[in-house]
């Protein structure tokens, strides 16, 4: 346990020390909020509104904000786990590997560290809520926190698995382009995933981020106050291949996904660093 704690604590120490990284990591979500929230919201609202025949009820910024928080969780989790490649390059991994801590503790500690850092980043984004004129309830924000951590842990597990498979920091850019970007765009984080071509729909439904984003939206947005048409327009009635899914199922799926990834990551980590 002490070992897990040490590895977790190191990641947090470094996160708060590295002001440039702390600051830089907000440029992307804020840029997205500006572009999507400001630039696109009018178009999106009239489009979605007329499509659903829902008129005024569709608030795009309210729709996209949880998606952008989820995007931040995804990016931060993956990048934080990839820091183990940096640790290998700078030699520190050796200090960890020769110590008596087990490989499982190293993987779990790294995963929790990355998930904590990602959750903190997500929480900092909440500060923008009043500025954007959004009205999520405090209760819903508190309720979404544990799920954010769970979701971030699953994504950190994914990052860890990737990190144990790629050898260099050069692989970094590639991972972002072939994995992270599609995972964001094909998840319903930025636009409703209605009426998609069949092949794209399959990818969307296989993408775990889809369910994470959906849960966050369902918790944060006051779904019951919206008319069924608006709910549909927002893509909040997610169905998987014809079968509607409940939020509980989605949460269980993310939890299972997290557990599976920790296992895989630990296994792959042990093999790579035996």
């Amino acid at each position: 346990m002490e070992g897990i704690y040490a590895i977790w604590q190191r990641d947090l120490l470094k996160f708060f020390r590295d002001k440039a990284r702390l600051f830089g990591s907000f440029t992307m979500p804020i840029l997205f909020l500006l572009i999507f929230g400001g630039g696109l919201s009018g178009t999106m609202e009239s489009m979605m509104g007329s499509m659903a025949g829902a008129g005024e009820g569709f608030n795009y910024v309210e729709f996209v904000f949880p998606g952008i928080v989820a995007m931040t969780l995804l990016m931060t989790s993956i990048f934080s786990s990839l820091s183990i490649i940096e640790d290998k390059d700078f030699g520190y991994m050796k200090e960890i590997l020769v110590s008596p801590i087990s490989r499982v503790s190293i993987a779990v500690g790294k995963m929790l560290g990355a998930a904590t850092v990602a959750t903190i980043q997500g929480i900092i984004l909440f500060l923008l809520i009043p500025l954007l004129g959004l009205s999520y309830s405090i209760v819903s924000l508190l309720q979404v926190l544990p799920f954010m951590f769970l979701f971030a842990a699953a994504l950190s597990g994914l990052g860890l698995l990737i990190a144990s498979l790629i050898r260099s920091t050069q692989g970094f850019q590639m991972i972002v382009q072939v994995l992270v970007m599609p995972m964001i765009f094909l998840s319903g984080a930025l636009f409703p995933i209605n009426n998609m071509p069949a092949w794209m729909d399959i990818i969307v439904k296989l993408n775990p981020v889809t369910y994470g984003v959906d849960v966050m939206k369902k918790i944060m947005i006051d779904v019951d106050s919206l008319s069924p048409q608006v709910q549909n327009a927002m893509g909040l009635n997610l169905d998987v291949f014809g079968r509607p899914v409940t939020m509980i199922e989605e949460i269980l799926f993310i939890a299972g996904f997290a557990a599976l990834l920790v296992l895989l990551a630990t296994f792959s980590f042990r093999r790579a660093n035996a």
């Binding site: 470094k14 020390r17 030699g91 960890i96 110590s99 008596p100």
Partner: peptide
Amino acid sequence: LDEKLTARENLMLHCRF
């Protein structure tokens, strides 16, 4: 060593490991 951390922090982590 972890160069981003202080001497003491490096030693403290080692104590935990």
